[in-house]
């Protein structure tokens, strides 16, 4: 009788911890937003200047040879334009990618952690032949590079 009671207790306890375990697991597996707020103003902006002011704090750009873009000149299909950006700058806080002729120019903002090299490769959509602009924020200043691309098939329609 006594052992049976213990068995009951043990079963109850293990069931309880099991439920907790599942709950904790679910919490970990469900992706949650890590950003305070997605930058609606920057992504909704319809000009490069507005997007930069909202997303990077300023639209005062310094052309820099230290920001390097690697984009095919004639990507043809505007829906998939591979963009690679690298830099020799140090202390890069954020990287923004923009396409100046797109209705909403801002493609994305990247925040590299301490470990990460300030370099990215990603694919963007280009609506019509345009300039692709990369902006890097370092020491409170914005450094940029741009490259013109010609697309024969627009990628946003």
């Amino acid at each position: 009788m006594k052992t049976d009671m213990k068995r009951r207790l043990f079963l109850k306890a293990s069931l309880a911890t099991g439920a907790v375990g599942i709950a904790a697991g679910a919490g970990l597996l469900t992706p949650r937003s890590v950003l305070a707020a997605w930058n609606t103003a920057a992504f909704g902006a319809e000009s490069v200047a507005d997007a930069l002011k909202a997303g990077m704090g300023s639209d005062a750009l310094t052309d820099s040879a230290e920001v390097m873009l690697d984009i095919p000149k004639n990507p043809e299909n505007g829906a998939v334009v591979p963009v690679a950006v690298t830099t020799t700058l140090s202390g890069v806080e954020s990287i923004a990618l923009l396409v100046d002729k797109n209705v909403k120019p801002l493609c994305g903002i990247f925040y590299p952690g301490k470990r990460m090299k300030p370099a990215m490769s990603i694919r963007v959509k280009v609506g019509e032949s345009a300039n692709i602009i990369a902006v890097m924020k370092s020491g409170g200043k914005l450094y940029s590079a741009k490259q013109a691309v010609t697309v024969t098939i627009g990628g946003c329609g």
């Binding site: 801002l106 493609c107 959509k125």
Partner: peptide, 14 residues
């Protein structure tokens, strides 16, 4: 340790 955080818009390719 978070290595990279990004904010993306709809103009990133499919």
């Amino acid at each position: 340790e978070t290595v990279l955080t990004t904010e993306l818009g709809p103009t990133i390719s499919k």
